[in-house]
Design a protein around this nucleic acid. Sequence first.
DNA 1: CGAGCTCTTGATGTGGCTCAAGAATCGTGG
DNA 2: CCACGATTCTTGAGCCACATCAAGAGCTCG
Lengths: 240, 240
Amino acid sequence: MATAYAVQQHSDLPRMRPAPPPPRKAEAGIIPLLPGITTELHRIGTPVAVARGEEVCAAGSPTDYVYKVVDGTLRVSRLLPDGRRHIASFLMKGDFFGFADLGDYSHSLEALTDCALIRYPRRRFDAVLEADPQAGQQMFRLLCQQFNAANELLMTLSRKTAAERLATFLIAMTRRQGGAGSRQVALAMPRVDIADHLGLTIETVSRVVTQLRRQKLIDLRGSNDVMLLNPDGLEDLAGD
Amino acid sequence: MATAYAVQQHSDLPRMRPAPPPPRKAEAGIIPLLPGITTELHRIGTPVAVARGEEVCAAGSPTDYVYKVVDGTLRVSRLLPDGRRHIASFLMKGDFFGFADLGDYSHSLEALTDCALIRYPRRRFDAVLEADPQAGQQMFRLLCQQFNAANELLMTLSRKTAAERLATFLIAMTRRQGGAGSRQVALAMPRVDIADHLGLTIETVSRVVTQLRRQKLIDLRGSNDVMLLNPDGLEDLAGD
DNA sequence: CGAGCTCTTGATGTGGCTCAAGAATCGTGG
DNA sequence: CCACGATTCTTGAGCCACATCAAGAGCTCG
């Protein structure tokens, strides 16, 4: 489960992709922040600031902490030995990380933007969950949501076309960022992250974006600022 | 979230695949079975027998029950409106179904073999989880496992080749069925289910099986009885 | 023992990947 | 505020892994 293996190329494997450059290790500067948690958890959390591009924790390292996102966007990713990458999810305000991992983190957590997090020592976190049923319920519900999101993505990756994947992604991101009726998204992640999330390449993502634009389903104001011109049409394309 | 939509073909969508025939509805015959659960849960469970091919519950129907598998193998699947299918997981002895779904089931549950299940009324199930922290913890751990399995599959579907996917699948199934050192699997599911699990077609699965056989990585005794001739080689191929 | 599956194999097609330039965009320092 | 180097994004040409289409070959179970 370690991240940086030597490359052991197999005879007929796809050619290797250079692994993305390892992000700088987070300095974990302590900043003052109101926790805003409704349970016992707020007593054991420490506010932490993380700069854009920093790695908060590495896949394979021991799960010493659980994190809650207060502000900013992060990516949850994992590498194959030869550098192929998958981004399991993007985390935003209110999302938790690390409480489903047992011994070690299965994924890395990296900041896409400057972020404000709250860090909970794992042992105490577990202790609170045991002692406070309220908190336990809340974490259980949260884990359910994450599990359901993972299953959505499974359907998307296993059976949808590139255009359907992107439509699904854009709708989901728009909802998360602005609520149900919203028609605008400021995507915090570059194309390569979208590609690695959707099981595509940057080029394909780029091509599909222009295709959706030509079909008047979306419009761009700067490459990461997306406007949904025809949400119903997009939804239709996304399927289910 | 309903299953049987009218087909609304989009201009340039992939051609439709005929939806798999709807399985017969389960008769849910009550049979005598020892529950074998270590918590309060055993008091509210009812043994249920389900015949091969029957649907235990349908995607989109209300989550009236949670199920535990006592014996047999089932598939957890979901359809796109045009019939494309994904199988999220296969359930075996000890696995639970339905406790992560909120209002309605997001997936269908269908028996691949004759099965023995235990059925828990959802309301009472939730009540037990609230009252019995022991049971709550157990379900939380179980959900963690399912979540981690889903993430494994995400990595597989997003970035692995057909051969790597099948190798990953065969190793996982072998471990689940016979433990770490085992070298044999009796696959309970037909090729089409493997294909829908791994995001491939039957033909590709079939071709990869023969390819792995030619490479002396596996051998078959009957099309569903697999022997791992070279587990390390397979593992290598599976990656990570 | 034969009807209906499921599985295998072959021929051909194609969606998305790879390789290769450019064009925008973004930081950064002068 | 602008120049410019670096990064990200777009676009094109060609290719390849896997899908599709089409037969057969085994199984399985009345």
